[in-house]
Nucleic acid binder design. Structure first.
Lengths: 194, 194
DNA sequence: TTTTATCTTGAACGATCGTTCAAAGCTAGT
DNA sequence: ACTAGCTTTGAACGATCGTTCAAGATAAAA
């Protein structure tokens, strides 16, 4: 009866994500996207509805990848705290050079967008909260294993991680030379509030 | 012989700064600016050269205001550390509600811009470094007064402040309800590395 | 093979972008 | 009052924006 779509939706969203991540929502034009994902406007609009629709899927893809990378860090390490450390080093040090932007796409989005794109803004906020919740789960696991005192509030510690990640990624963008980022990440877990 | 410009350059830059700060570089159109600063395109281009030229002056105005607010905090407090605390509370808590954006305009700019606007990007980076240097001067004063151990590296402490400000301002944007921001700011100075 | 339902294409739309410039307006010096 | 020299004005430019849609291409059902 019909013809199936020939593009791979996941791959397309992945490529769109990278471009949006690099340039931000407003500086990315639909024509930039057409080139990168190799689709014509009609197909893009039939599939994603609008520039905002595609951005929303890109955000979701970014968030899912982040959660998976945290899980992978956990799988590769012997303790939840080491997993958090490894994850932070990946986000802050490795991605500094090789990712589309050294900054978190979610943080960039909440920085860039206003109420004019309220839905996208809310999606980015929700994703940041979701990441924070993943941090919290690892901290609770660390408490269960005795690596972190159960006197401490896992929510507060997770929030602290979130703040340090945002701060360090922004900072890493400002200093051209290499700041001692690895050392600073280790320090986070060696001192208050840990 | 000639006619003098009738607009007040400082006031104009101030208004442009607020709009750029709120919406970011790309989402702010020249027509938005025309309305806000009440100038016609010809006058704007004769005075500032381009959208980028006006943005550059807005960045400089923002930075100057920040340095002055830090100095004012110092004048209003009895110690340099109290001044830093007061400044952070102003930036993070007060401006959260009343400023054009809860985020630092400089941090927003380094997050948004790419090499396509290399000059503006560099100006924002330089301004962030300048603010960090102002923090350092206050910390050195605190060391001279015996409020901070001279064993500690003032540069590292200043960098720590910078990272906490970025992290907290980004975080304050994501949580709609009020996080205990004041408490977190106090904590910064009560624990490592202070 | 023909039909039919879907997907793809790319020219084109109106809106808006950053910017220019000739004309008009204004003020200080004569 | 007149002129010279600057400022201000706003219509207009070409480029690009996000988006639409009629026409062509394709593959499964008949």
């Amino acid at each position: 009866m019909a013809k199936n779509a020939k593009f791979n939706r996941e791959q397309v969203v992945e490529k769109a994500k990278d471009l949006y991540w690099e340039k931000g929502f407003h500086a990315t034009s639909m024509r930039n996207l057409q080139d990168v994902i190799d689709m014509r406007p009609g197909s893009i609009y039939a599939t994603f509805g609008s520039k905002e629709g595609l951005f929303k899927e890109a955000l979701a893809s970014y968030t899912q990848a982040g959660i998976e990378q945290l899980a992978q860090s956990r799988a590769e390490t012997s303790s939840p705290i080491e997993a958090l450390k490894a994850f932070m080093k990946r986000m802050i040090i490795e991605q500094r050079a090789c990712a589309p932007s050294p900054l978190c796409m979610l943080a960039k989005t909440v920085a860039e967008l206003t109420d004019e794109q309220q839905e996208l803004l809310q999606a980015a906020k929700d994703s940041l909260k979701a990441m924070e919740h993943e941090f919290e789960k690892l901290i609770i696991e660390a408490q269960a294993l005795g690596d972190v005192s159960t006197d401490k509030d896992a929510k507060k510690l997770a929030r602290h991680i979130q703040i340090q990640v945002s701060g360090l990624r922004t900072y890493s963008r400002t200093c051209d030379g290499d700041a001692p980022l690895a050392e600073m990440i280790d320090d986070i877990f060696n001192h208050y509030p840990f």
